Lab assay of single mutants.
Amino acid sequence: MKVIFLQDVKGKGKKGEIKNVPDGYARNFLFKKGLAVEATPANLKELE
């Protein structure tokens, strides 16, 4: 799953980066803790 990092995550990505991460990791950790959002067209547009 492609995500946009909202904060630096040690060993995974830095704020503003767009990266592919495993689905479970994204849903169960990154999204729940507010560290990233899914890289949807709407979210990508907001990032610009």
Rank of each mutant, 00 (worst) to 15 (best):
M1Y: 06
M1Q: 05
M1F: 08
M1N: 03
M1V: 15
M1T: 14
M1K: 08
M1W: 05
K2W: 15
V3A: 01
I4L: 11
I4D: 00
I4F: 08
I4V: 07
F5W: 03
F5G: 01
F5D: 00
F5L: 06
F5H: 00
F5R: 00
L6I: 10
L6M: 08
Q7Y: 14
Q7T: 12
Q7W: 10
Q7E: 10
Q7P: 00
D8P: 05
D8E: 08
V9K: 02
V9G: 01
V9D: 01
V9L: 06
V9H: 02
V9I: 09
K10T: 11
K10H: 11
K10S: 12
K10A: 13
K10N: 10
K10I: 10
G11I: 02
K12G: 14
K12Q: 15
K12N: 09
K12E: 11
K12M: 15
K12V: 15
K12Y: 15
G13M: 02
G13L: 02
G13S: 03
G13N: 02
G13Y: 13
K14P: 01
K15N: 03
K15E: 05
G16H: 09
G16I: 00
G16L: 04
E17R: 03
E17M: 06
E17N: 04
I18A: 04
I18T: 07
I18D: 00
I18Y: 03
I18L: 08
K19P: 00
K19E: 03
N20A: 11
N20F: 15
N20H: 14
N20G: 07
V21E: 03
P22Y: 07
P22K: 09
P22E: 11
P22Q: 08
D23M: 15
D23G: 13
D23N: 11
D23T: 14
G24E: 14
G24K: 12
G24D: 15
G24Q: 13
Y25F: 12
Y25R: 05
Y25N: 05
Y25W: 11
A26H: 04
R27V: 13
N28A: 11
N28Y: 14
N28W: 12
N28P: 01
F29I: 11
F29H: 10
F29L: 06
F29K: 05
L30A: 01
L30W: 02
L30R: 00
L30G: 00
F31Q: 02
F31E: 02
F31G: 01
F31Y: 06
F31M: 07
F31N: 01
F31W: 03
F31S: 02
F31K: 03
F31T: 03
K32D: 07
K32Q: 10
K32S: 09
K33P: 02
K33N: 15
K33Q: 14
K33R: 13
K33H: 15
K33G: 08
G34I: 02
G34T: 03
G34W: 05
G34S: 08
G34V: 04
G34P: 01
G34Y: 08
L35Y: 13
L35E: 02
A36Q: 00
A36S: 02
V37F: 04
V37I: 14
V37D: 02
V37N: 03
V37H: 03
E38S: 07
E38G: 04
T40I: 07
T40V: 06
T40N: 10
T40A: 05
T40E: 04
P41Q: 12
A42V: 10
A42T: 12
A42H: 13
N43L: 12
N43R: 07
N43F: 10
N43A: 13
N43Y: 09
N43D: 06
L44P: 04
L44Q: 07
L44D: 05
K45R: 14
K45L: 13
K45M: 13
K45W: 11
E46P: 07
E46Q: 14
L47K: 07
L47Q: 09
L47H: 10
E48K: 06
E48Q: 13
E48G: 14
